[in-house]
Simulated scan of single mutants.
Amino acid sequence: MNLRLIKAADAILGRVATVLLPAPVVGCYGTSIRSVLFIRPGGIGDAVLLIPAILSFRNKYPKARITVLAEKRNGAVFTLCSVIDEILLYDNNGELFMALRGSYDAVIDTEQWHRLSAVVARMTWAQILIGFGTNVRSRLFTHQLDYEQSDYEETSFLRLLTSLGIAVTQTSVPFLTVPTPAASVAEVLLGELADRTFVVIFPGASIPERRWGADKFRQVAKRLSAKGVSGVVVGGEDDRGEGERIVADTGWLNLMGETSLQETTAIIERSSLLVSGDSGILHIAVGLGIPTVSLFGPGREKKWAPRGDNHIVINKHLPCSPCTTFGYTPKCPINARCMAEISVDEVEQAVLTLLDRKNFDKHQQKP
């Protein structure tokens, strides 16, 4: 089932089902949870930022079986979390049926707005049903929580666990684990770079409004290369030509279209920092504890931008931005000026600042 079909089904079937299904009975439940289902449709970024909540759940319930119901486009993210027992795919009919047939003490629907995931949660008939009460979907849960657009998304997911008596606590990094086979492939692909300082650029984005442009990334790569900084460009096969433009005359490595998500993660783990727009790959770097330079425009900085001194967020804060709400970004009438006004100088300087800071910290740690 493709993304467009899922959204269409949600708009029609989701609305009807949320009204027709009986609301769950809210009662007193025991504190013992032997199995849980986390539902996470959507993209890579949401999936990455859910993992701290899954780890927090595991700390509270070390013997509980954890199942995640994801999508094909984000399912691989959960292979980066070693405490998950089973990963099923929301858009695979057979695996969705397996999830519905499962026996769970609690189901946690982490979708923020769409209704079908709430319907799926209710159809498991689990006694404890937790989710965001952002619309009529709230009637299908035993525990509904508010969803705040100004909360960091990782925090929003952690708040869902308060219904189970789990406090919201700061997550330590790294919280992602790179599988050994992926690390081995990354080492081969990187070659001589594997043991050197290098920068990773991810120029992709889920929508055109979040793209900064290959020409600007190319200028950054050329300037860094002139200063002796090596680099790698990662991304999907569709953007391979863009990757070639970025690395031209730089000596950098273009690995676009040559790596799985796990292998891309392994490459980022070996790097000194990542440069990216508002993307799922950005959150992977955060989950690995890798410094980032991120470019924000349409997206909500308060909700999605990395936190901490090792991350530099560049955002022009135009009056019309952010314009994205619940994952929807309207077509921009001014050609994404919020991204276009970010300069090559700003990005280059941010990269050099983080590299200098990283080198300083490394020297400080020496005996």
Rank of each mutant, 00 (worst) to 15 (best):
N310I: 00
F198Y: 02
D238T: 14
E192Y: 07
I314R: 06
D238W: 14
V293G: 06
T18Q: 14
I207G: 09
G204D: 06
V344W: 04
Q219K: 08
Q349D: 09
P22C: 09
P181D: 11
S206H: 11
V313M: 05
G236W: 10
N310F: 01
H311D: 04
D238C: 11
E187K: 11
S272T: 09
K362H: 04
T329V: 03
L355N: 05
Q219H: 01
E341K: 07
G75P: 01
S117E: 05
V26E: 10
P333D: 09
K222G: 03
R65K: 15
I130M: 01
S225T: 06
L89K: 11
L176M: 02
L161V: 03
A64G: 13
T110A: 11
R159E: 03
W304H: 02
P24Q: 12
R101N: 08
L49P: 06
G191H: 04
L164E: 04
V16T: 12
I342V: 11
K316H: 11
R65I: 13
L50Y: 08
L129S: 05
E111S: 04
E153H: 15
D109V: 04
R115V: 08
I312W: 09
E269N: 02
N93I: 09
F97G: 13
P181K: 11
V286G: 10
L176D: 10
I54H: 07
P62I: 14
T250K: 00
V220I: 10
N335S: 11
D151K: 14
Q364H: 01
T142Y: 03
E86V: 03
T324R: 00
Y328R: 15
E192T: 10
L5P: 00
V199L: 00
A99E: 06
H363D: 15
A266E: 08
